[in-house]
Amino acid sequence: MPNTVLTVEDLSVTFALHDSEVHAVRDMNFTLTESEILAVVGESGSGKSQAFLSIMGLLARNGRATGKAMLGDINLVGMNKSQLDAYRGKDIAMIFQDPMTSLNPSLRVRTQLAEVLVKHRGFDKDKAIRAAIEMLERVGIPEPAKRANAFPHELSGGMRQRVMIAMALLCQPKILIADEPTTALDVTVQAQMLDLFKSLTQDFGTALVLITHDLGVVAGVADRMMVMYGGRAVEKGKVDDLFYDPRHPYTLGLLHSTPHIAHRAARLDPIQGLPPSLEHLPKGCSFNPRCAFRFERCLIERPPLTPTGEGREKACFYEGELSYEKVA
């Protein structure tokens, strides 16, 4: 039985606006075990980034998180920043959506890496730099000693993302959150990067959360998957199960709008309609305006996320067969 490294319970994120608030994430629950890769997928604005930023204590000033994110017996949610600093960067690390702007342009790469080890491992500066260079080599950066002296703008996008990966893995964290780590990179580099993630997290026993809106990235990399819609998880389960037998109409729609995966359909079909506005979610199931399988109950009542056996969960009232012909 692998160890549980993170347990998230009823995690919600709200942002205060001038005279209202938006709920970017609601009642999220999941666990992560050692070495596991969890994919979090959903359209833009579904709350993927905010959920994990809240765990890292990195919400914008108007954001508030409630619920629990238990790292062992420590709740990271709502912890004050200076206490949180003992864990972030050490036990839980994050790689961000945009490698081009996520490194400090005015500091050398080695400075940005070494400070992590100085803080969390108590290394002196020289030792930290040597360890940083080793890690750069490990993530496949050629001439790591030279690159360590470079400023970020002297490196290509792929190289910068490797630096970000090296930075996040310096302390061999228990959990690594990678927020769309490959979106900004070209396709060949994307594949290399995914391999790198996979092998390094296996080596270190790190659990990886892979946030993406590209199901093509999930296939062949992730173990489990959580599909988000309008701030809530709507389906969870093993990647293979969800790919071959999706049980939520939104998951089905996502699959059919992804190249390479939509093999069962002759053509590629984007999901009809627009992603919902979080401020004006429809009554009942948030997905109902775009759903081909909806019936009366969906318009009135919100389906809760419920187990359906084999470690799967879905938030949908429809129990019949989900077939793509019906959607089209």
């Binding site: 204590g57 600093d85 702007t101």
Partner: peptide, 26 residues
């Protein structure tokens, strides 16, 4: 508000270093 300051915060190096090393110079 930049991404790189967010990165710095995510490393847990503490508010003082985030400001002194990462924010003031730029």
């Amino acid at each position: 508000g930049t991404n790189y300051v967010r990165t710095a915060r995510s490393k847990g190096i503490g508010q003082r270093l985030v400001l002194a090393r990462h924010a003031i110079k730029p």
